[in-house]
Simulated scan of single mutants.
Amino acid sequence: MNKIYRIVEKRKIWYAISIIVIAIGIFTMATKGLEFGLDFKGGTVIEINLGQNFNKPDVDKVIKKYSNDFQSNKVEKTHISIKSANLSNDDVSGIVKDIKAKYSKSNITNQESIGASIGQEARINAIKAIVIAIVAMFIYIAIRFEFSFGMAAIIGLIHNILIMLSIYAILRVSIDSSFIAAALTVIGYSVHDTIVVFDRIRENQKYMRREESGVIADASLTQTMARSINTVLTVVITLVSVYILVPSVRNFSEPILIGIISGCYSSICIASPTWVLIKNRMKKRKKLKISSDTEN
């Protein structure tokens, strides 16, 4: 066999990196909280048809006269969508009037208010969706493989979600429905990547029965690492291109980009070493039980 990467032996380094990032994120969340988008805290959504192609920064300057806390997205070539938690009806009228003075053919095509209670309900439903997805993944992996694989995969998934939340908290990026959709997408993608590694571990267990779990995991990671990294790189290149060239979907592509990178790191450096720890713990308990039964 070719050279084997000693990933499991260095698990303390990988765990330390993740713990530092998550600890900073939790501290930020505890002291400053998370920045929630309009979907989760309520506010006003307006869409304006400018009647012609336009420069988005110019329109943003107009909006900033009325609100410093807003999100704007260029929709197609002639429409702009504006979201803000603190726009009054007078502010909306002022924005439309100022934009119309600059773009004579412009007119408001949609205005919608989202109440705080609806935003709170959306938050609760988002959390439920993530929890259900994680539990379903655990059941699937536990049935397809075994309990230790399921537990390791769940720890990896929770790690990914915490990393995404921590980075958003540290960078003060707002969390909205796009983040939740991206998080669920990342959960499915990262589990697929983890399953590829676990499937190789299961196969190698048949041919490396006398080897320790750490050696089997390292061999399996070495065999699958190139595939995992190459797959992630192709996805990252695509997402970066979308992020740069399609600003209207940045709220969706940004968390996916973070999650995909975190998911690859998790599959290699978190899930597999965690499986080794769980597997070794289960073996010790089994030996203690056999020893106890023998003495009795």
Rank of each mutant, 00 (worst) to 15 (best):
101 A>N: 06
116 A>P: 09
114 I>F: 00
98 D>N: 04
99 I>P: 00
102 K>V: 01
107 N>P: 13
114 I>S: 02
100 K>D: 05
91 D>P: 02
92 V>C: 11
96 V>E: 06
117 S>A: 12
108 I>P: 12
104 S>G: 06
106 S>Q: 00
114 I>A: 02
88 S>C: 07
88 S>H: 05
89 N>Q: 15
88 S>W: 05
104 S>M: 07
110 N>V: 14
115 G>F: 08
99 I>E: 00
92 V>Q: 05
93 S>D: 13
105 K>N: 12
107 N>R: 15
120 Q>T: 13
115 G>R: 08
117 S>I: 10
91 D>S: 05
95 I>M: 04
121 E>M: 12
120 Q>L: 14
100 K>N: 01
101 A>R: 04
122 A>F: 09
109 T>R: 10
100 K>T: 00
115 G>M: 03
119 G>T: 03
106 S>E: 02
112 E>L: 12
107 N>A: 14
105 K>A: 10
104 S>I: 11
93 S>W: 14
90 D>K: 13
111 Q>E: 11
93 S>T: 13
108 I>A: 06
90 D>I: 13
99 I>Y: 00
107 N>S: 15
91 D>C: 07
110 N>H: 14
104 S>R: 07
118 I>R: 06
114 I>W: 02
97 K>R: 09
112 E>M: 11
117 S>H: 09
102 K>A: 04
111 Q>W: 07
98 D>H: 02
104 S>W: 04
112 E>S: 10
93 S>N: 14
104 S>Y: 06
96 V>H: 02
117 S>D: 06
113 S>A: 14
92 V>T: 10
118 I>K: 05
122 A>G: 09
119 G>C: 04
111 Q>D: 11
109 T>Q: 15
104 S>A: 08
108 I>L: 12
97 K>E: 08
100 K>H: 05
91 D>Y: 03
102 K>M: 04
101 A>P: 06
104 S>T: 08
110 N>T: 14
103 Y>Q: 01
104 S>D: 05
110 N>C: 13
103 Y>E: 00
103 Y>W: 03
89 N>I: 13
108 I>V: 09
89 N>T: 13
120 Q>I: 13
90 D>N: 15
93 S>L: 15
104 S>L: 11
92 V>E: 04
120 Q>S: 14
116 A>M: 06
122 A>P: 07
110 N>I: 14
94 G>E: 06
94 G>F: 01
92 V>N: 06
97 K>N: 08
122 A>S: 10
94 G>R: 00
119 G>H: 01
96 V>S: 03
90 D>S: 14
121 E>C: 09
113 S>W: 14
115 G>A: 10
106 S>D: 01
101 A>C: 05
112 E>K: 09
101 A>W: 04
96 V>L: 03
91 D>H: 04
113 S>H: 14
107 N>H: 14
98 D>T: 03
98 D>V: 03
95 I>K: 02
110 N>S: 15
95 I>R: 02
103 Y>C: 01
101 A>T: 07
90 D>C: 12
96 V>F: 03
116 A>F: 12
110 N>Q: 15
93 S>H: 11
107 N>L: 14
89 N>A: 13
95 I>P: 00
